[in-house]
Computed example of a mutant assay.
Amino acid sequence: MGRSRLFDETEVVRSARQVFWELGYEATAVPDLEAATGLNRSSIYHHFDSKRGLFDAAVESYLDDMIRPRLAPLLLAEVAPSALDTYLQGLRRALVDEPTALSQNGCLLLNATGSALGHEAGLQAVISRYLADLRAAVDAGVAAARPELEAAERELRVTTCTGLVFAAMAIVRVDREAAGGMIDAARAAVRAGAGAGPATAAQLRS
């Protein structure tokens, strides 16, 4: 018979996630995970197979706790016209205005692409799905906010907004203000009318 699980897996994975997030996958050692989770090496390997298995669980935890709830209002059957701007404003607060793990450490997934894991098909597939979900959410948000746009114009704004969100999450741990500027630019790209200049950052934050 297998050994019974005597710990809260959700909390263990969240504790491990914070270590991976702060140190990076390659710099995180098993003793770091033991200290954070309260599990010994044998328990970690028994329940998660490996350090990589625990990291994979941490990634899913990151998506479930940090990413999917933000995107959920943009993936409803009926999306509010303000949903995309609300999402972008909330992301800006998390990146720039509040001392969150995201503002301090950047995106857990995008950070991992700079490690040896970035060459692995498994992580690449997770990031591709994340990008597809983000793009679908932004597309729905642009369609709700700007129903008058022609297909080509809508596609351009979706691509611009999605790219700026990704860029902001990648750069935030190096330059928080630059990340905020990218989110402002994403909001402006959605709002701008044909032939009109984008709104200023100050107008967007008002």
Score class of each variant (00 low, 15 high):
132 A>E: 14
189 A>I: 02
1 M>I: 07
181 G>F: 05
78 E>F: 06
87 Y>S: 00
105 N>A: 06
56 D>R: 14
166 F>Q: 10
5 R>Q: 15
114 G>P: 03
202 A>I: 04
41 R>K: 15
7 F>Q: 09
83 A>G: 06
24 G>Q: 09
154 R>G: 00
171 I>K: 01
136 A>H: 12
65 D>E: 14
143 A>G: 06
143 A>P: 02
173 R>F: 01
73 P>Q: 08
60 E>C: 04
91 L>T: 10
157 R>E: 05
50 S>C: 09
130 Y>R: 09
119 H>N: 11
135 R>V: 08
17 R>L: 14
107 C>G: 04
72 A>Y: 08
196 A>E: 14
58 A>E: 01
26 E>S: 12
27 A>L: 14
206 S>I: 04
147 P>M: 10
183 I>S: 01
140 A>E: 06
46 H>Q: 09
82 S>T: 14
91 L>D: 05
170 A>Q: 11
148 E>L: 04
5 R>K: 15
89 Q>L: 12
184 D>Q: 04
184 D>I: 00
96 V>C: 05
157 R>N: 06
77 A>S: 08
153 E>D: 13
159 T>N: 08
82 S>D: 15
158 V>W: 01
96 V>R: 06
33 L>E: 04
7 F>P: 01
200 T>E: 03
169 M>D: 05
48 F>H: 10
134 L>I: 04
31 P>W: 07
81 P>F: 05
42 S>V: 11
199 A>V: 02
15 S>T: 03
71 L>F: 10
128 S>F: 03
125 A>C: 01
159 T>I: 12
52 R>D: 09
99 P>E: 12
136 A>T: 13
65 D>Q: 12
23 L>E: 08
56 D>I: 08
88 L>N: 00
68 R>W: 11
26 E>G: 04
115 S>I: 07
179 A>R: 00
126 V>S: 03
174 V>A: 12
156 L>I: 11
150 E>Y: 09
66 M>F: 07
194 A>V: 12
2 G>C: 02
59 V>Y: 05
132 A>C: 01
50 S>D: 10
201 A>S: 13
165 V>H: 04
44 I>N: 08
192 A>W: 00
188 A>P: 03
15 S>C: 11
67 I>D: 02
61 S>N: 06
44 I>H: 04
168 A>N: 07
187 R>V: 07
137 A>F: 06
184 D>T: 06
177 E>R: 12
109 L>Y: 08
38 G>N: 09
161 C>T: 15
42 S>N: 11
188 A>W: 03
152 A>K: 07
112 A>R: 06
126 V>A: 09
68 R>G: 00
133 D>H: 08
102 L>C: 02
18 Q>D: 13
147 P>T: 11
93 R>V: 07
56 D>V: 14
97 D>Y: 08
133 D>F: 00
52 R>C: 00
17 R>F: 07
18 Q>L: 14
88 L>V: 05
56 D>F: 06
167 A>S: 13
35 A>R: 15
192 A>M: 15
164 L>T: 01
195 G>T: 11
50 S>G: 06
133 D>C: 04
173 R>D: 10
19 V>C: 12
145 A>R: 13
84 L>G: 03
52 R>G: 11
187 R>N: 01
135 R>K: 15
168 A>Y: 04
144 A>S: 13
202 A>P: 00
19 V>H: 07
102 L>S: 01
22 E>C: 07
2 G>A: 13
188 A>D: 07
201 A>I: 03
114 G>H: 14
39 L>D: 05
157 R>I: 14
205 R>F: 03
